[in-house]
Lab assay of single mutants.
Amino acid sequence: MAAGGDHGSPDSYRSPLASRYASPEMCFVFSDRYKFRTWRQLWLWLAEAEQTLGLPITDEQIQEMKSNLENIDFKMAAEEEKRLRHDVMAHVHTFGHCCPKAAGIIHLGATSCYVGDNTDLIILRNALDLLLPKLARVISRLADFAKERASLPTLGFTHFQPAQLTTVGKRCCLWIQDLCMDLQNLKRVRDDLRFRGVKGTTGTQASFLQLFEGDDHKVEQLDKMVTEKAGFKRAFIITGQTYTRKVDIEVLSVLASLGASVHKICTDIRLLANLKEMEEPFEKQQIGSSAMPYKRNPMRSERCCSLARHLMTLVMDPLQTASVQWFERTLDDSANRRICLAEAFLTADTILNTLQNISEGLVVYPKVIERRIRQELPFMATENIIMAMVKAGGSRQDCHEKIRVLSQQAASVVKQEGGDNDLIERIQVDAYFSPIHSQLDHLLDPSSFTGRASQQVQRFLEEEVYPLLKPYESVMKVKAELCL
C-alpha cells in the first residue's frame, strides 16, 4: 500500500493539533497551500530580480507567473513527485505547466533550498508574528487579574506546605514575570531571523556568478533584492546548502521555554482548584465526569500541561538535527523538520489560546482563602504575639514557653481530632496574655502579614508589564474561544 493518505478522510490519521486544537490561522501558515504558494512567490521574486539585473526574462513571463501564483494543481504535483521522487522539481514542473512561456526560467540558477529553506524562514517569521500578540493578550488578562487582587491576602506555599502570606495578585505576578520573559525572547528570536537568500547549491553562489558572467556586484544585488522582497532586513552571508540548523534550535528553545512557563502556571491553577481557592472557567453544560456528576475538573489547565510537556520535548529534535548536518548538509534534517517545526508552533498556539481562555474567566473564592488563612495564621502570628507581650512588660522566655504549650495543644486538636485551630481562643482565655487581649485582632490582621506584596504588584505592572504590552494595544480586544 502506498504511503500517505487522504487526510480529510475519517479513515486516515490526522494530527489532533490540526484537527482538534490549533487555530485556523496557525494551521494555514503550515498548510501545503501556504507552503507551495510561497515557493511560487519566491520563484517570481527571483525572476523579477534577475530581470532587473539584466537576464533575458520578459515582462510577459513575469506576468504569467504572477497570474498563476494561486493556480496550484495539487493532484498534478503529487503525481509528479511520485514520478520524480523530488518535491521541488515536482512543483517546478507543475508551475511550468500553467506558465508555459515562463517554464524555462522558473528556478533559474537556484537549488531546492532556495524555495525550501527560504519558505521555512518566512513561515517561522509569520508563525512567530501570530504567537506574539496571543502571548501579549494572556499577559494582559493576567495583569488585569493581578491588579484587581493585588491586596487580597492568601496563604503562600513553599514545598506545598503553608508559608508566609502573600497576595493573590502577587502570586499571579510570578506567572506574568515568566511570560514577559517569554514574550521578550519570542520577539528577540523573531527579529534575529535572517533570510537564507540566493546562495546556490553549497552556499557559494557559483551558479549565479556564472549567470551574471562573473559580476560579483550583481550577485550581491540579486541576494539583497530577493531578501528585501521577502520582507527581511538581512540575509546570511555564510550558508551551506541550507541555512544553519542552529536557527531551528533557537526558535524551538524559546517555544519550549514558553511551554515550561505555561505548565507551571496551569499546575498552580490545578492545585488551587483542589484547594477550592480558584477555578478555571466551567461552562453551564460542561460535564466533569461521566460517573461523578459533582466533579469540576480543571480540564483546560490539564490540557495545557499535557501539550506543554510535548512542546518542551520537541527542542531535542533540532538539537540532534543540527549535530548531524555533515559538511554542507545531509538530508537527516528533512523529514524531522517537516514534523517538529509545525508541531512546535501548533502546540504553542494551542496552549496560548487555551491559557487566554482560562485567564479571561478565572474565578476566585475569597471566603475559602480566608478560612485557610484562619487555619494557619495563628501559628504564624506567634512571633508577633511574643513581641507584643514583651512590649507590655512580659518575659520573652516565659511567653515563648506559654505559646509553645498552647500551640501544641491547638495542633493536637487540628491533627488528632480534625478540629479547627483554636490557638487564639486559648490565648484569649489565658490570664497571662490579658495585657494584649485587646491587640489580638490587630495582630491577626492578614494584611499585616503580606509585606509589600501589593506595592510590588503595582510597581511591576507599571514599570515592566504595561510598557512591554504597549506595541500590542491594537490587538488586545480579541477574545479566545474554545470549541473543545
Rank of each mutant, 00 (worst) to 15 (best):
460 F>S: 03
26 M>E: 01
435 P>L: 08
168 V>K: 02
453 A>P: 05
385 I>L: 14
255 L>A: 08
123 I>F: 04
444 L>W: 09
419 G>C: 09
84 L>P: 00
170 K>N: 03
112 S>M: 00
462 E>V: 08
246 K>A: 02
321 T>Y: 08
139 I>L: 13
381 A>M: 09
433 F>I: 05
464 E>P: 05
416 Q>P: 02
379 F>Y: 03
59 D>R: 09
102 A>F: 04
333 D>L: 02
60 E>M: 11
61 Q>Y: 09
131 L>M: 12
260 A>N: 00
323 S>Q: 03
306 S>A: 07
77 A>H: 15
16 P>T: 14
126 N>K: 12
352 L>K: 04
91 H>E: 08
217 H>Q: 12
412 S>T: 12
179 L>V: 11
210 Q>E: 15
446 P>Q: 03
350 T>Q: 12
55 L>P: 01
179 L>Y: 01
24 P>F: 14
314 L>M: 13
187 K>C: 09
360 E>V: 09
307 L>Q: 15
416 Q>W: 13
459 R>I: 11
319 L>N: 00
188 R>H: 14
451 G>C: 01
225 M>C: 08
169 G>I: 01
273 A>P: 03
285 Q>T: 13
90 A>M: 04
33 R>Y: 12
228 E>L: 08
287 I>Y: 02
107 H>Q: 02
380 M>D: 00
55 L>Q: 14
431 A>W: 08
412 S>K: 14
71 N>L: 11
112 S>L: 00
40 R>F: 00
185 N>P: 06
392 A>I: 08
395 S>P: 04
169 G>Q: 03
154 T>P: 00
365 Y>K: 05
285 Q>S: 12
14 R>W: 15
437 H>C: 11
312 M>V: 07
453 A>Y: 04
417 E>A: 08
164 Q>F: 06
433 F>K: 03
269 I>S: 03
132 L>P: 11
354 T>L: 14
314 L>I: 13
466 Y>S: 12
452 R>Y: 07
464 E>M: 08
209 L>I: 14
105 I>K: 15
431 A>F: 06
240 G>W: 00
257 S>A: 12
40 R>S: 01
44 L>C: 12
471 P>S: 15
303 R>K: 05
31 S>F: 00
145 F>Y: 09
312 M>N: 01
327 F>Y: 12
202 T>V: 07
338 R>C: 01
415 K>Q: 06
149 R>P: 01
176 I>S: 06
177 Q>C: 10
373 I>W: 01
349 D>L: 03
251 V>A: 15
141 R>L: 12
103 A>S: 11
356 Q>D: 07
60 E>Q: 13
407 S>A: 14
347 T>P: 10
251 V>D: 01
31 S>G: 10
460 F>C: 06
197 G>W: 01
294 Y>C: 00
425 E>H: 15
379 F>I: 05
414 V>P: 05
283 E>Q: 15
94 T>V: 15
423 L>D: 04
317 D>L: 05
146 A>P: 01
372 R>A: 05
416 Q>A: 09
233 K>C: 12
397 Q>P: 05
365 Y>D: 02
197 G>P: 02
330 T>V: 08
331 L>G: 04
476 M>G: 15
357 N>K: 05
418 G>M: 05
297 N>M: 04
421 N>L: 06
286 Q>V: 01
352 L>H: 11
311 L>F: 02
81 E>L: 02
464 E>R: 04
108 L>G: 06
41 Q>T: 10
430 D>R: 06
353 N>Y: 05
408 Q>M: 04
299 M>T: 09
248 D>N: 04
337 R>L: 02
433 F>M: 08
293 P>R: 00
430 D>H: 15
330 T>S: 09
180 C>N: 12
219 V>I: 07
155 L>Q: 03
461 L>N: 01
413 V>K: 10
450 T>V: 11
447 S>M: 13
350 T>C: 12
396 R>P: 05
63 Q>E: 09
311 L>E: 01
447 S>F: 15
238 I>K: 01
382 T>V: 08
234 R>P: 03
287 I>P: 01
442 H>R: 10
393 G>H: 08
8 G>I: 15
278 M>A: 06
385 I>P: 04
291 A>R: 01
33 R>T: 08
175 W>S: 05
172 C>K: 05
31 S>R: 06
388 A>F: 02
57 I>H: 09
